[in-house]
Simulated scan of single mutants.
Amino acid sequence: MSHNLRPVPQPIGIFPQFFAQAPETLVLKEHVLSLTGDSFSIKLTNGTPIVQVEGKVLSLSGRKKVCDMAGNHLFSIRKEHFHIHTTFGVEDPKDQKIMEVKSSLALFGSKATATFTSLNGKQETLQMKGNFFDTRAEITDETQGGLVVARIDRKILSGKDLFFGQQTYAVEVAPNVDMALIAALCICLDEKNNEK
C-alpha cells in the first residue's frame, strides 16, 4: 500500500469497538471451497482476527452473517431482490436495516454507494469506485467532501489462491473509520463481482 490515509475529522461508523485507532490494513480472504457457502475471515495484516463472516449455503438472498471474535452476531448482509441495480441490505441481529449498499453502472469500473446513520446520528454516504477489473478501489465519504476513508487493493497474493479460486484483498482503513462497516462494503463488492 502507498501512503497512509489521514484520520477523518468526524468518526464514521456504527460499531465503536471497530473504529480504527491508527491507519489499519484489513486482509479479506474468501474461502470459496467451504461447505457453508462463501465465508471470509477478516484480519489485520499482523494476523489479528477482527470479524468472522459465514455464508449460508443454498440461501436465495446469499445471506452472510458477521460476528465478532467472541461469536456475537454484529450484522447480516443480504442481497435484496426487485431492484434495478444490485442492492444489499446490512441488517442488525433483529433484522433492522442499518446500511444499504447499491451498485450502479459506471462507464469504467464499478461503483457502489452505501448509506447509513453513524453512531453520532449523522447521515453518511460512502461512495466506492473501482477500476475496470476491480483490482483497486477507493471508498470516499461524500458527506465530508469526498474524503478518502479506505482503499481496496484486490491483488491476488499468490498462485495458490488463484488455483483454488480464492480472492485476497488488502483494505487500508483511515483512523476513526469503522473497520467492520468497511469490511461489509467489500463483501458486497465481492458478491456483486461473483455474479458475473
Rank of each mutant, 00 (worst) to 15 (best):
F19Q: 01
D190Y: 14
L147F: 13
P93L: 11
Q21F: 11
I84T: 10
D68Q: 11
N46A: 03
T36F: 07
P23I: 03
E142A: 10
E142I: 13
T117P: 01
H31C: 10
L35H: 08
N193M: 14
F40T: 01
V53R: 09
P93C: 06
G159H: 05
R154V: 05
Y169Q: 04
K160F: 03
K122V: 10
F88L: 13
G146C: 01
V57F: 11
F164E: 05
L119E: 06
M128R: 07
G146Y: 07
R154Q: 07
M179A: 03
Q10H: 09
S34I: 08
H85G: 14
R63F: 05
Q21D: 14
G145Y: 00
K155H: 09
R78T: 09
L189E: 03
A150K: 00
N46R: 07
K122Y: 04
Q21A: 08
D178G: 01
D134R: 01
H83W: 15
V57H: 00
N46Q: 05
S34V: 01
P7Y: 01
N72S: 05
T140E: 11
C188V: 10
R63W: 11
S41M: 12
L181H: 12
A174I: 00
H81S: 04
G165I: 07
K29C: 00
F88M: 11
F163A: 03
C186I: 14
T135N: 02
V101W: 11
H81P: 07
E142G: 06
K111H: 15
F18W: 00
G159Y: 03
G121P: 12
F116G: 08
I98Y: 09
K29P: 00
H31I: 13
E100H: 00
K97R: 15
L162M: 05
E138K: 04
T86Y: 07
A22F: 03
